[in-house]
């Protein structure tokens, strides 16, 4: 049986604990997969557009100010963080994003999201359970 995005959500949640959302979006802002936990709600379209824009702005800043290649960007809040990283899925440029719980560990999030981003570049996931909340 093929792996689903929900399976990946469960796996990463078991490592990071209490993540609220994991999402894969095309670079131009279309949702591919999205998974939320419990009562956490986020509009797919809005999440996709925001991650796409922030990643593009991060890329522009990396290139034009640092002269380097963009890898990831992070928004820290008083209730957790949102981490975005570039990846590919089925040869299409995408953005993988994660919204953490209240007590995030940025180092761990970066490590596991990097691993997941690398995995997605060659993965072919089943479409089942797309955009469904986890119980």
């Amino acid at each position: 049986m093929k792996q689903t995005f929900a399976d990946l959500f469960k796996q990463i949640d078991s490592k990071l604990h209490s993540i609220r959302c994991l999402s894969l979006t095309t670079e131009d802002g279309f949702s591919v997969f999205s998974q939320t936990a419990g009562s956490f709600k986020v509009e797919d379209d809005k999440l996709s557009a925001v991650t796409s824009s922030l990643t593009a702005l991060g890329s522009a800043a990396a290139k034009q100010l640092i002269g380097a290649k963009f890898e990831s960007t992070c928004i820290e809040t008083n209730e957790g963080l949102m981490f975005m990283i570039k990846t590919k899925y089925q040869d299409k440029p995408c953005v993988l994003s994660l919204i953490s719980g209240n007590d995030p560990n940025l180092g761990q999030i970066r490590f596991y999201l990097n691993k997941l981003a690398a995995y997605l570049e060659t993965a072919k996931l089943s479409a089942a359970n797309d955009s469904q909340p986890q119980k």
Binding site: D28, A56, P93
Partner: peptide, 17 residues
């Protein structure tokens, strides 16, 4: 902030930022 468009919009790149 142009990126490659994943759908047909009549051009290759589109602005997202």
């Amino acid at each position: 902030t142009d990126v490659e468009s994943s759908v047909d919009i009549g051009k290759e790149m589109t602005t997202v930022g």
